[in-house]
Nucleic acid binder design. Sequence first.
DNA 1: GCAGCAATTAATCAAGTGTATAATTTCAAA
DNA 2: TTTGAAATTATACACTTGATTAATTGCTGC
Lengths: 209, 209
Amino acid sequence: MTRKVFHHEPEAVRQNDLIAATLDSIAELGLAGATVREVAFRAGVTPGLIRRYFDNKERLVAAAYRSFIADLTAAAEAGCGEGSAHSRLAGLIRASVTGPVADSRALSIWAAFIGTVHSDPAMATVHREGYQAFRGIIEQLVGEVISERGETAAKAEIRSHAIVLNALLDGLWIEISMGGDDFSRLDVVRVALDSVATLLGIDPAEFRN
Amino acid sequence: MTRKVFHHEPEAVRQNDLIAATLDSIAELGLAGATVREVAFRAGVTPGLIRRYFDNKERLVAAAYRSFIADLTAAAEAGCGEGSAHSRLAGLIRASVTGPVADSRALSIWAAFIGTVHSDPAMATVHREGYQAFRGIIEQLVGEVISERGETAAKAEIRSHAIVLNALLDGLWIEISMGGDDFSRLDVVRVALDSVATLLGIDPAEFRN
DNA sequence: GCAGCAATTAATCAAGTGTATAATTTCAAA
DNA sequence: TTTGAAATTATACACTTGATTAATTGCTGC
């Protein structure tokens, strides 16, 4: 038998490929389907190689989680654009409830990971970091929006608003990404913007800009 | 060796025990830890017995999911109590963001199951049914609240409100159950009630009753 | 071109998985 | 008390899993 031909790849490239293959496996087959063999196959590589780049399968999965969350947050943040705080918040909201952030694949991966957080300390750490990062963005944005309107609010109030907003966006993201038929005939962006505006006491018409 | 002594149990009891053991396993060890042996051990039974009550492990897990969702929905619904639509909606909200509905164990189980929905059609069915049931409750309640206030709203508007409310409650439930430190010094019930009141255009003070 | 090192493969292992089945025990009916 | 069916156990099997290691290959510097 002839051995498989292969190429040397830079460490970063292989790691990325393995992480991507892991996320693909999870998205299509669930966490249980993301076996070492499946991941290796999708990465066009042999199972044993994984151990050269990740000490454990656990480490690989945690790295994939971190990468996934970072990408998701970055995509949402990219939706902010630049400009007034109002328009940036609107951009964040719009990005949060439309593709590629709000899509079935992302939800599947997120859900698979979330299920491990409670029983796996390493995953819990990754989760907490990602969560706090996103809520920090919202909190900052809410603060800026309030001061932009010439108003002032206590830190606790801003935080309270951020928590509610975050919850609403999370919930909407889940519902939309889950893809029940209920959203197909609904303008999700308008609903999301109006809801947030109402919660913040902003005139929805003005907020939609 | 002496064989294990055992008792005959009615079918319903054994099924319940096995389902309870499955949920316990998932809550503590994650879905991956809910092996046939682990579940059997927790149920004080031998692995082989499971197959007498459930064709597959898949069936057992699906049954556990259905049972879990039903209990959760029932607990939330029980919080409604009786009385005006306003007070029933308030009760539902209060129940949704406090124990035993909003607690770490419930979230762990929910998360584990959610991760399987995308790649497992049977689980998807169970999920969809449970989800629609809960959203139906909210939709009904929102409709009653509106008409109770002497107002009138198109069906689409009611549905839109229900979707947003459901998303908000889901998101709050997740955040609270996840148990970040951020909620420890926050009156979650008040925040939830005020947010919903604001979204529905009700005076928060009146809504809190 | 070639030597040597790092990257990759191939093959194997022990442990754990869900499932199947025959042997045993419980329990209710006669 | 006995008997027979149903419930439960014990054991085993085939398979998959993550991990390990030696052999092989590709590549870089000389």
